[in-house]
Design a protein around this nucleic acid. Structure first.
Lengths: 345, 345
DNA sequence: TTGAAAGCGCTAACAG
DNA sequence: CTGTTAGCGCTTTCAA
């Protein structure tokens, strides 16, 4: 059983007694081809079920029209919406996306990059979530002048393009509301210190408190390994403080769910006001919600990253030297409030 | 700014004063190339950072080593895990995946298929969720002898390959438990009649009741458009019956959440025992859970579909006529129980 | 064990 | 406005 051959421009050319270049140009709406010829070519193409062979086109043009996307995991709704947004932008510009899930493992990431290089991707959007990654796995791409845009991660390097969320923006609003309701003892249940996401949250928390003139208390900052046990043990540390907080900022919605679930089952559902960094798609489905959930607009971040990458890729296909500059864009987070904050006595 | 050129086998050949064919063969571990030559070639390849160009390989071999995957939407955890499973199988066999989201829209589906054909995918896994689709959009693939495996959908056609979930298996168990607890008034909140998923559920429900000797009551079968309003209005229809059910099978977890949320807020959380067709990833996160949720094993379904497709694709690359037969596989669903079923008085 | 040569389908100077 | 020609990087007969 063999695959059926698909009509090629050569065959169309033969039928019409013209050259393949003419067919190619006609099919691509090139100017400098007479309307009549163009019509005839297109007609035959249609009749013969001609389907352009992108593999051949890519090969010939030495561009794959494919961009790589590496994220930790698609089961996270955050990356799912980012993907969809990127996909939309990409397809408008006739780019395809090749996907890789790293599961936060650098080995896997390296494998994916290698695979992408085999495919000669024209550019890469990547969300690295590892501590102190030196991005070595990407140096190969750098060497080949293949543009890379980082996404959902912040680095101190000034020579890389990235788009990330400004976590502080949303948190600030949340703290503002809490303060307005009389809260000034606000704790943080952060993620593992190794995660850059944790460091970002810590920075945002510290800045947020500072801007509201709230003093930082070190025992208000606890960490969880994001397991259920870790979440609850972090929660307990706060509960057991002599002077416990009245509000808690948690690493993400899952942490909130664990904490709130336990408190609720003990009849303590109003013990703390919670603010979480949002990653669940639809709180409407949940019985219990935090006071506020910080929205990081993954779709918007994805769109921006995709647009940057496309611009960079276009520059790659041009003779002149591209201007030296770096796209580094922060998308302000926001916060969505789901409940009234109980006044503090 | 131009992309840097990558070493080709031609260059390696020149360095070693051998022919490109020798390099090609050496690199591919061909027999009939002396070990020494092979070593020398590989060494130079490493030194020069040789990266095989899959585009060229595909082009030359007239196989893309890419398989297409079309699903309604990746934000559904069901398809997310299916994708991951398929991806795993595919990559073991050195296949890549090209992804398309149809959003249950046939126009979009057609566009995706077209795009896939441009890329000369070697095979397709597709989950169609449309009513009475005649799969016309796939006839083009059929014409070209490109194998297609349907996934998560059932069709009466005996000439297509598919893997689907046997919804009945899990539902049967669930009904069994309900009956054991004294329930015999079991209703169904189904999805839109247009969805094949709805028809499948109805069939499973009918069979399930029958096998337990429970009489079918038409007013126990209501439908929702899957909006919150639709879900609640369906629920109300059941509540308002003169002789209401004591247990309800719902279309999926989201429907359950809506229904249960309302009942709970009215202090009626034990009015019905719910069985839902599962599509949420982790009930552990939810405060309220159904009595049982039917698991459809998307990962397993995906793996099976991928394996079937790979087998079919391999047959395509072989001279002989493939045996005429059809892979049609049902994966038994199961049910996970989250609560005790309250005894019926 | 290796090489020569043709070809995969299409694009893009260059030339007319 | 159109044709000629060369070539993208690799595989694969066929011949040596």
């Amino acid at each position: 059983m063999e695959r059926k051959k698909i009509t090629t421009i050569k065959e169309i050319a033969k039928v019409l007694n013209v050259s393949t270049s003419t067919v190619s140009r006609a099919l691509n709406g090139h100017p400098g081809i007479s309307p009549v010829t163009t019509d005839r070519v297109c007609k035959v193409a249609r009749e013969q079920d001609y389907i352009p062979n992108r593999a051949a086109i890519s090969f010939s043009k030495r561009r794959s029209y494919t961009l790589g996307l590496i994220v930790p995991e698609f089961s996270e709704p955050f990356f799912c919406s980012a993907f969809t947004a990127i996909e939309n932008i990409a397809s408008t510009h006739n780019y395809n996306i090749m996907i890789g899930q790293s599961y936060d493992d650098m080995e896997t990431e390296i494998k994916i990059v290698k695979k992408f290089m085999n495919h000669r991707i024209d550019g890469l959007i990547i969300s690295i979530a590892k501590k102190g990654s030196d991005y070595q796995q990407l140096s190969a791409l750098e060497k080949l002048n293949i543009p890379v845009v980082f996404f959902d991660c912040v680095s101190d390097r000034t020579d890389i393009h990235f788009v990330a969320s400004n976590l502080q923006a949303g948190l600030l609003k949340g703290i503002h509301e809490l303060v307005a309701a009389g809260h000034h003892k606000i704790a943080l249940i952060n993620g593992p210190a190794a995660l850059s996401a944790s460091r970002q949250r810590l920075v945002a928390y510290v800045k947020g408190l500072k801007e509201h003139g709230i003093e930082l208390k070190s025992d208000f900052i606890v960490a969880t390994d994001l397991s259920r046990e870790g979440n609850l043990s972090a929660l307990n540390k706060l509960i057991e403080l002599n002077d416990p907080p009245t509000a808690v900022v948690v690493f993400n919605d899952y942490v909130f769910l664990d904490c709130f679930g336990v408190l609720n089952s003990k009849g303590l559902k109003d013990l703390f006001q919670f603010i979480s960094f949002g990653n669940l798609p639809d709180w409407g489905l949940f019985e219990h919600r935090p006071f506020g959930s910080i929205e990081q607009f993954p779709a918007e971040q994805g769109s921006i990253a995709a647009n940057i990458l496309i611009q960079l890729m276009n520059e790659m296909s041009v003779e002149e030297q591209a201007p030296v500059r770096c796209f580094q864009k922060y998308v302000d987070s926001d916060i969505i409030f789901f409940r009234d904050s109980a006044k503090v006595d």
